[in-house]
Design a protein around this nucleic acid. Structure first.
Lengths: 253, 253
DNA sequence: CGCAGATTTGAAAATCGTCAAAAACCGTGG
DNA sequence: CCACGGTTTTTGACGATTTTCAAATCTGCG
C-alpha cells in the first residue's frame, strides 16, 4: 500500500489522522490545555516534546537581541509545533498559545517507539513535515520579496486557504493575531499593517468585522500578488480533533 | 535503541548516512550529474523525486510575477532538496545547481517501499526534515527582522557553520553564490550586498580572496548580530559522499 | 464609567532600492 | 602575452518605501 494518497483523497487522510490519535492514545499522550497568550516553551528549554495542536492555535517565534520578534509559524489544529528542534538538546524557538489552546505533547521518546511510529503514522509525519516546510518557504517568499501591501494580502489568502470550511467558503477569515503579531510574522511594523489593512478595506477588497475579515474579491487579490492556492489534504482539519481523552491542565508558566 | 543520538555522537550519524546509501543502492537509485547553473526542476513540473545532494550544491528558488526571485534554501552535500513538495502533484519551486553537482533522485515511490524506508533510514529522514525546517526558520528571522548589514553577517556565519572542517577551521568560507544570488537569498539587492561586503572588509571583520571569505573576528561578528552557532550532526558531510556507483549524466534541460 | 490594550493617523527620518555608469575579473583565442 | 567580450562587482546620486515617534481614537471588559 502506498502512503502517498492522491490529492483530494480525504478519506485516506482522515484515516491517517485517526491512526495518529490511536497511536498517541497507546503511547499515553494526553492533551494539555493552555491559557490564551501563555508561553508553552521558551528558547533554550531542554527539548522534550513535539506538540500536535488539537484545538486553538499557537505560534513559534524568536526574539532578537535588539528586541525585535519574528513569528515563524502559526500552528493550527492538526499542525506540529516544535518539530524543527527534533533531535536537538535545547529548543531554538519559543512557542506561545493564541487564545485557549489544547496540544498533545508528543515526547521525543515516542519517535523511537515502534508502537507509536507505525507504518500508518510515519508517512503522516512525513507529509506534515513537508507541508510545514512548504508553508515556511511561502512565508519566506512573502517576507523576502513582496512589498508591504502584498504581504498583507498574502497572509489573508493563506489564512483563508488554511481555515475551516464553514466560514472559509463564506469568504471569511478569522484573524487570531493582533496587528503587532501580524507585523512580526510578515517582517513589518504594526503601523504598516494598520495602514494597509485600512487601505485594502477602503478599496473594497476586504471588509472588516471585528477580528473577522471578509474577502470581497478573492480572485482579484490572487491576481494582485500572483498567488497560487495551497492544496493541502484535509488531515489539517481532522488530525487534532478526533479523540477527547482526559485532559490535563497545564500548570502556569 | 533510540534514534535520537546525542549531539556530537558523530559515529552514529555516519552509520545512518551509510545506511541511507545502502538503502538507495538497494532501491536502484543512481546519482545524476548536473552542469553548473542548470535547472534540475522547474516550478510546475510533476513531482517525481526528492533529491539527495551528493556533491556540489543547489538552491531552491521561486520567481514572482514581478520578476523578483527568492532563493529559499542552499542545499549542500547531504541535504535533501524538493522535500517540501513530498506528496504533492506538482512541485512548487525550482531547483538549480551551483557549480557542477551530483544528486541522487529518490523517486517518490521509494518512500512507500519498506526496503528503502528501513528503521535506520526513517529517523535519518526525520532529522533531515527537522534540520531543514530549522535552517528555514533562521533564514526567515534574518530576512524578516535584521537590517541589511546583519543579514550578510548572518549568511557568512551560517555558511561557515555548514561548511566542511578543513577550510572551516581555518576560518574560511567558500561563497558559491554571486552577489545577486546572495541578495535573492537575503531579500536584498546585489548593490546592497556589494556595499556591505566592502564595508565589512574595510572594517576588518572579513578578508576577501576571490570567492573565499576569511573570518577575521568571528566572535565579534557573532556578538554583533546575536548569533547562536548551529550544532548539526555530521551527517551533513557524509550522507552524500560514501558510495560512488555508476553515474548517470543528466540530459540537457 | 473608566482603564488598559489595540488601532489609527500624521509628520519626520532612515534604510534600502533603482538607475546608470565605471571598474574589475575571467576565460578564450589570437 | 595581450586583447577581447561577457559577466560580475563597485560606486554614486536620487527616490521610494517603510520605520520611528508621538498622539489621538477606538474597543472590550470589569
Amino acid at each position: 500500500m502506498s502512503f502517498l494518497p492522491k490529492i483530494g483523497n480525504e478519506d485516506l487522510e482522515v484515516a491517517f489522522a485517526s491512526k495518529l490519535h490511536a497511536a498517541l492514545h497507546r503511547s499515553n499522550v494526553r492533551p494539555v490545555v493552555f491559557k490564551p497568550g501563555s508561553d508553552i516553551q521558551h528558547e533554550g528549554d531542554a527539548f522534550s516534546s513535539v506538540y500536535l495542536v488539537k484545538s486553538g492555535a499557537a505560534f513559534s517565534y524568536a526574539l532578537l537581541a535588539d528586541g525585535h520578534r519574528q513569528i515563524l509559524f502559526l500552528h493550527q489544529p492538526g499542525d506540529l509545533a516544535g518539530f524543527a528542534d527534533f533531535g536537538m538538546q535545547r529548543v531554538s524557538c519559543s512557542l506561545r498559545s493564541v487564545g485557549q489552546s489544547v496540544l498533545y505533547p508528543i515526547p521525543a521518546a515516542a519517535f523511537s517507539e515502534p508502537s507509536f511510529l507505525t507504518p500508518a503514522v510515519t508517512p503522516f509525519l512525513f507529509k506534515k513535515a513537508a507541508q510545514m516546510q512548504s508553508i515556511l518557504m511561502r512565508t519566506l517568499i512573502a517576507v523576502g520579496r513582496m512589498e508591504a501591501r502584498h504581504r498583507i494580502v498574502w497572509l489573508i489568502l493563506m489564512l483563508h486557504d488554511r481555515s475551516d470550511p464553514p466560514e472559509n467558503s463564506a469568504g471569511s477569515v478569522e484573524m487570531a493575531l493582533n496587528q503587532t503579531e501580524i507585523g512580526d510574522l510578515l517582517g513589518l511594523t504594526n503601523v504598516s499593517v494598520s495602514k494597509f489593512l485600512c487601505q485594502l478595506s477602503e478599496e473594497g477588497f476586504i471588509e472588516r468585522k471585528g477580528t473577522q475579515i471578509l474577502l470581497r474579491k478573492r480572485s482579484d487579490l490572487e491576481k494582485m500578488i500572483g498567488y497560487e492556492p495551497m492544496d493541502f489534504p484535509v488531515d489539517i482539519h481532522s488530525a487534532g480533533k478526533a479523540l477527547s481523552p482526559s485532559i490535563t491542565i497545564a500548570k502556569r508558566r
